[in-house]
Write a protein that binds this DNA or RNA. Structure first.
Lengths: 179, 179
DNA sequence: ACGTTGATTCAACGAGTGTAGAGCGAATGC
DNA sequence: GCATTCGCTCTACACTCGTTGAATCAACGT
């Protein structure tokens, strides 16, 4: 039996979103064209517009669950090490897409700021001291730097290092800030 | 007396380069147009092309002294804290321009990788142990993350914090990696 | 003084982009 | 069965961008 109309629609929409996530993740917002997304999704460019209204909206939809949080850990240090997908060793495409464009695309920037602010607040609330928020922010941007260097810039010195080893070296470093 | 021809030429070239640095730093490569640079430099867009050949070449020239190194410090931790302009509290526009585009522009990415690799090697050589290079890389991307969060994303929690305080909190953290 | 060089501008082209509307063809509901 | 809905494609527009070659005008050498 052939797939129903709604199924086809949902399927192509998913293909578009997935293609968009991959392309946004590896090229960023500006260098990703609607046409390239459509080609990758084996679909007409106009369909992308019809479904999502605009390139901006497509980006928003492709990245929208980035702020979804990983489950809370008891130890703030382990929580930080666990977030941003480091326990899995790889981030989902939607997160990479957001990170890739956060420095050059206004909306990606606010999404990133919001996600990081949430992270900072959660960590800060489980730290003591009056500068808890500042220390939480530093722990967060440390993980951001490691993620950028590892996943986006793909620095040679970090490329083939297993996440557990990085976590092992980072742990005492972060504990100094959690103290 | 009116300025000589060579002076005029050098002056407009400097205005163009300065305008390019500022715009590249705040909008990144893709969102910065030759026309915008020309307008900011009070010059015709065609002159920018005549002087620099292409937008890519203009970017390269605008960013070219980014890899210039800060003087070597004895203590690797203080060296890391001192680099990337943290002692000055602010990075020069050419560095910001490179950082802003490093995730979305191929050439900015290799420039950034080269600069970071140099930094990593220098730190690594003054550290002991077989994983010296890895620990040096982590110290470097930590500073990268702090810089990105502070100068580019301008996170609220870091915005109005004096660099010395950030350095103070980061010091024990980095010493764990330098050990 | 004057022809020449060279810095600068004017006007325009060509490519690529996001986007809109008309049309097609198959699944759908009566 | 059949009119209709609707997912999808074709085509094209409008715009912006990097880029170019001719034109302009002042500084320069003689």
């Amino acid at each position: 039996m052939s797939p129903t109309r709604a199924e086809r629609r949902a399927a192509s929409e998913q293909r578009i979103l997935e293609a968009a996530r991959l392309l946004f993740a590896e090229r960023g917002f500006e260098r990703t064209t609607i046409r390239a997304v459509a080609t990758a999704a084996q679909v007409d460019p106009a369909l992308v517009m019809q479904r999502f209204g605009s390139k901006q909206e497509l980006f928003t939809r492709a990245v929208e669950h980035t702020t979804a949080q990983t489950p809370q850990e008891d130890d703030p240090v382990e929580h930080v090490l666990g977030t941003l997908g480091w326990k899995l060793g790889e981030l989902p495409p939607e997160s990479l897409a957001m990170l890739r464009s956060m420095l050059t695309h206004p909306e990606a920037a606010s999404t990133a700021r919001a996600a990081l602010a949430g992270q900072i607040e959660r960590i800060g609330s489980s730290l003591g001291g009056d500068d808890a928020s500042l220390r939480a922010a530093l722990m967060t941007v440390i993980m951001l730097g490691v993620t950028v260097g590892h996943q986006l810039l793909e620095l040679e010195e970090l490329r083939d290092v297993p996440p557990e080893e990085i976590a092992r070296l980072l742990r005492p470093c972060l504990q100094e800030l959690a103290r």
